[in-house]
């Protein structure tokens, strides 16, 4: 008991620091994304300044090679990154969780088939699958990018869901629930989903980071959200040629991407520590 009482507060404090740091990073980017709907320093395609200006009072993040304001692009890029991340994770989670639970419940044959299917899809890089989906559609658009990344993420979510569900299905409380006459649907809703969500949630945060980075890559390749959307990935691509003369053009979107991905992961860890009752109160 005494060992626990000295050990716990320290762990709790560390958990809190993680949570708050994540919240500040993600919160700042979410705020920038929301504000971008109502206000940006300049219009996105407004060539308001000189070419490749360094950060100044007029242009907080400098300007690009056409004289457009980079801070404006960063704000709109935040919006796009969040929309793509949330959309892709939502699509990936719906498809992945549904097929993962189906596999865990299925007959041996269907389960093996689905598990092999997940593994084959995972063997392809998410980005490659997303590129195939974009290529299959007529043209690149924000919606296509989200759908493509969601499909690309779904086998990863599916495989984890399948394993987590099987673990929960082997527990005595599932047998206990079945013995007391609980239907399978109720068992999934009341017992399986709540017990896999803490683990799945952390993983989905990881997938969110992947999706944001993959969107940047798609945009970098010209397969992401087309202009006039600004994307951190396309900012990186455009700044590529001038990285030595105007490094902020590449460094700032890179930092923004880094902050969002790290922030989401810290936040997910912190949330799990806070809301998992088995961890709470030791």
């Amino acid at each position: 008991m005494s060992a626990e009482s000295t050990e716990l507060p320290r762990r709790r404090r560390r958990g809190n620091a993680t949570f708050w740091l994540g919240l500040i990073l993600v919160g700042g980017i979410v705020l920038a994304g929301i504000v971008s709907f109502f206000w940006t320093p300049y219009a996105l395609s407004d060539m308001a300044g000189g070419r490749l200006e360094a950060p100044s009072a007029a242009h907080w993040a400098g300007t690009d090679r056409l004289g457009r304001d980079l801070f404006t692009q960063l704000m709109i890029g935040a919006r796009i990154a969040l929309i793509v991340g949330c959309g892709a994770v939502a699509i990936g989670a719906v498809i992945g969780v549904a097929t993962g639970i189906l596999a865990a419940f299925a007959t041996r044959f269907l389960d093996d088939a689905l598990a092999a299917f997940f593994d084959i899809l995972i063997a392809f890089p998410t980005l490659l699958i997303a590129m195939l989906v974009v290529a299959a559609r007529e043209e690149a658009s924000l919606g296509t990018a989200i759908l493509a990344l969601g499909i690309g993420l779904s086998p990863i979510v599916g495989r984890i869901t399948r394993i987590l569900t099987k673990q929960v299905l082997g527990q005595d409380y599932i047998t206990a629930a079945r013995v007391s006459g609980t239907s399978w649907g109720a068992i999934v809703y009341w017992h399986i989903l709540p017990n896999i969500v803490p683990f799945l949630g952390v993983n989905l945060a990881l997938q969110f980071g992947l999706a944001v980075m993959a969107e940047a890559s798609l945009s970098y390749l010209g397969l992401g959200a087309p202009p006039p959307n600004a994307s951190w990935g396309r900012m990186l691509q455009e700044a590529q040629g001038t990285v030595y003369t105007a490094p902020w053009g590449a460094v700032l979107p890179g930092l923004a991407l880094f902050a969002l991905v790290i922030g989401i992961n810290l936040l997910a860890d912190g949330l799990r520590d806070r809301f998992d009752p088995a961890r709470r109160d030791g």
Partner: peptide
């Protein structure tokens, strides 16, 4: 499913694992 609970119910050996830890 209808019969379980109505006609028969079970108490298991290990109550820690027979209860859902998150509920």
């Amino acid at each position: 499913v209808r019969m379980r609970g109505d006609a028969v119910a079970t108490v298991f050996q290990e109550p820690l694992t027979a209860l859902d830890p998150l509920m």
